[in-house]
Write a protein that binds this DNA or RNA. Structure first.
Lengths: 231, 231
DNA sequence: AATGTCTATTGATATATATCAATACAAGAA
DNA sequence: TTCTTGTATTGATATATATCAATAGACATT
């Protein structure tokens, strides 16, 4: 159970962060020496909002959800975490605190790399630093547009957008099994769980999607895109 | 009119970005050689959403507003721009496009520094790169919390927060002259202009603020903070 | 099979907030 | 001064969306 989850050295890890390509062989080996792994079961918390950031996290396999615990016990889901993506959070270079929680949605094999090591490499290798900047910038831009859509789109538009996000970026297929409950789908798209149910029903009745509970099939992607672009 | 707006070299510019402290004298001189300046009148656009990012912008004096032009001609104001802050936007390292518009709220003296030069320095000087990372991270974190508050707070809470933002971060005083119309205040706090009027009236009647139209005086900051923390 | 515990679904209702419309006010232009 | 134009204010109304409450399924446990 334990031994078969040890990933090979970062050098040939298939789930590695793109930016590691900017490191020299020696530097990558250094990263490798400063990593550790752990397995998580669905529902388990990998890191918690407020706690100090000691390591960057990468999911070797499985998926997780990133969410902020806000006012009044309400959760706001930021997105789904999966392999190949740095999960460190904007606090890394600000206050070394996690500003959101990561919990496992499936069985997760997670790799932890000491943040000090990555920060050291940022100072040593400027291409790596640039890669870091690109990564943070992309995420920042995403947040922006999510913010915009939450502020200006109505519920149907947001739900369409969410479904497209899941299909295009997470499952990379128009047919997928939903990892999220209606409650969680609401936290991701910014609405009450009852509204999620009603809107998914609307979409089903209009033959835009087929929804056999955890099973989702996007039938009319153009229409979904149209609704997302301001429904 | 023209000559008196030429700022001294960045070396002793009072409005300079903090991160320029990480540059050597030579590097700073290099920055200085690649800058230009321009004056703007209230309402004029300094750079426009969608246009290519050729330069980073710094306001030597005056203030501007940053806003996204979203769906349905609705604007979403991101914040107020003022001196000492890098205004480059998250597109810098992604697609070299501006993702929001900057327009002048007052007379503005703006300094433009070629983005290529800054990017070159990021690669040359790792401390500078780190400073850049810190800057972007802070902004990203801000966006996050604004997003959270817009999603979860009610109008009174958001307006309280906005007033505290203006007092603490922009005007740095509890008494200030509002640069924004009710419409713009609505774009900043995410509500209709009529709602802005009604809430400011509520706050006035409760003696939390004094509002003699462009004049604002915060009378009860604790209460305002309380409302902001989930009113 | 019976029981308990979740989550999903549905309908009824409440509430926050936007929109619409009318008026008042302020600042410039003639 | 009067006129014009834009913003601010106020009240009435519409609408999106949340909340509440009840029921129905699904799945595990006994």
């Amino acid at each position: 159970m334990v031994e078969n989850c040890i990933a090979p050295c970062c050098t040939d890890c298939e789930s590695a962060w793109e930016n590691f390509n900017n490191l020299t062989e020696d530097e990558l080996r250094y990263v490798c020496e400063n990593r550790s792994q752990a397995m998580f079961r669905p529902g388990e918390i990998i890191f918690k909002q407020g706690s100090p950031i000691s390591s960057a996290v990468f999911l070797i396999n499985g998926m997780g959800k990133l969410y902020i615990e806000g006012y009044d016990n309400k959760k706001m889901m930021i997105g789904i975490a999966k392999q190949k993506r740095l999960i460190a959070g904007p606090g890394t270079y600000v206050d070394s605190r996690h500003h959101y929680t990561l919990s496992a949605l499936t069985d997760v094999n997670a790799c932890f790399i000491k943040m000090d090591v990555l920060k050291e490499l940022v100072l040593k290798n400027s291409k790596f630093a640039e890669g870091f900047l690109i990564d943070i910038s992309k995420k920042s831009l995403n947040t922006f547009y999510r913010f915009l859509s939450h502020s200006q789109k109505k519920m149907h538009g947001r739900m369409a957008e969410t479904l497209l996000y899941l299909a295009n970026h997470i499952h990379e297929s128009d047919i997928f099994d939903l990892l999220l409950s209606r409650q969680e789908l609401g936290e991701l798209s910014g609405m009450a769980k009852e509204s999620v149910v009603r809107i998914l029903k609307d979409f089903s009745e209009d033959h835009i999607i087929e929804d056999k509970c955890p099973h989702i099939k996007i039938l009319d992607k153009e229409k979904l895109q149209l609704i997302s672009n301001m429904g």
